[in-house]
Design a binder for these strands. Structure first.
Lengths: 247, 247
DNA sequence: CGAGCACTTGATCGCTTTCAATAGCTGTGG
DNA sequence: CCACAGCTATTGAAAGCGATCAAGTGCTCG
């Protein structure tokens, strides 16, 4: 596994998440202070990064790959409560104990900071705190959108919602034109999709098949998705297709 | 209606939410600046305070009463995505358009600030931004706990979860002993409970009746609830009854 | 007394879950 | 090279839970 390799440079200027992560608003001198305390960690797909209930010694940003936050009930029912993409932040300054399991959904690289030095730095660097506030508010919006999905949408709408969200942010990264067909690889297994959507994996499989049969999506293999008509998908998701991106 | 009356004093020191709201960490001089730009508004139960999609001219704190954030789909399905109690903050600095309907669930008093002056003040008053970050992180935790409720719990567990949350924070306000029976009034109609839990009001009614029949709760009238055994209720909610409060 | 509202209760329907079998793929070892 | 294990995903049949449709109750207020 050559997971490390491409990110063990120490210069933040080259960092792929430089302009979207918690450090986005930092000036050069502030960035230097962060560089002093940062270190990279790599994880393989499936690995648990943090166990719920464990002490949190570090915080950090997802540099590449995808991580998930999940809650588990005593009888084993699990619900994903966060999907962390590159630039997303892990951990909460001021908190000692992790409230959720954090897992690497794909191979993953994180830019980490030991918690204490990071908290100290945040205290004297308003740019970091400001950015963290913005990011947290965005996550809260995303969480609330998911509450609507979980509480009120049908299985078919849930699948369409998940696909449209993944498609949308893939597009926002790769600058794809929104009008043409959209192509991407699903970063989640059927089971992970089920955990995200509050469904069983069988229902996920059935609804993915149904959307395929109805021409809303097409599949090559199990994971490679093509969306011929994004507007159609958003209708299936129960969303307004004139979609206002509220940022 | 004498909704105003009790809060049109201008002195923040007497304010019931002084130590928990967005102003909690402010020093005397900072508080004076807030006092200069604040104003109170009262709303009657059922009134809509802000419509989704409308411009947001102000932000503010709930002083007394309860407000709710709800999302509505085109076909009328609605999901509550936030329940705002005294000291909770309404609005997002930097955002122009309201993403949710904000409604007064009970009679309500808010301490408002016009958005622009508040944003300016936040820029030069780290104590406000810091407190807002803490509060937003808390709301995110609450939202994620609700995602588990919405996605994975049964109707009975959902009702028990809602009751235990209301009971818990009623206790945190009124300093009730946790071991004895807990008594409170439901601030929500059956329909509002249904919108919170992603259920129909009929299912809410049935499950409340079932919990009553099984002795988990007792009712006087429709709204006055007694919980003889909080541990039992939390079992019914599917929560660990050794419940760590993860502040 | 009757209208309106919040709530309860009953009967039936249907979507999602559950249980179960099977397919397809990858990697390992005889 | 094929057999087989292990994993992910698909598909079918049946069961169950919550939604839907429909009355009916109890309370408040005019």
């Amino acid at each position: 596994m050559t997971l490390k390799a491409q990110f063990d440079h120490s210069n933040c200027d080259d960092c792929p998440i430089r302009h979207r992560a918690v450090c986005a608003q930092c000036e050069t001198d502030e960035l230097e202070e962060l560089e002093d305390i940062k270190y990279y960690r790599s994880f393989e797909a499936g690995q648990t990064i943090i166990w719920s209930g464990d002490p949190m010694n570090f915080v950090g940003s997802v540099v590449s790959g995808i991580a998930s936050l999940t809650q588990t009930m005593e009888d084993g029912r699990t619900q994903m409560v966060g999907l962390l993409l590159p630039s997303d932040f892990v951990g909460r300054p001021g908190r000692e104990i992790a409230p959720y399991d954090v897992q690497a959904t794909t191979d993953l690289v994180m830019c980490c900071f030991r918690k204490k030095p990071f908290e100290d730095l945040m205290g004297k660097t308003p740019h970091i705190a400001q950015r963290l506030l913005q990011m947290t508010l965005d996550e809260l919006d995303a969480a609330r959108e998911w509450m609507l999905v979980l509480g009120r949408k049908t299985a078919r709408e849930k699948i369409a919602s998940l696909l449209s969200i993944i498609a949308r942010r893939d597009a926002s990264v790769s600058k794809t034109v929104l009008s043409g067909p959209i192509v991407f690889d699903l970063p989640l297994t059927r089971e992970a999709m089920a955990d995200y959507l509050g469904l069983t994996l069988e229902t996920v499989s059935r609804q993915v098949s149904a959307l395929k049969k109805d021409g809303v999506i097409s599949l090559e293999g199990k994971r490679h998705v093509t969306i011929p008509d994004m507007g159609r998908l958003m209708e299936e998701a129960g969303d307004d297709s004139d979609g206002g991106f509220p940022v």
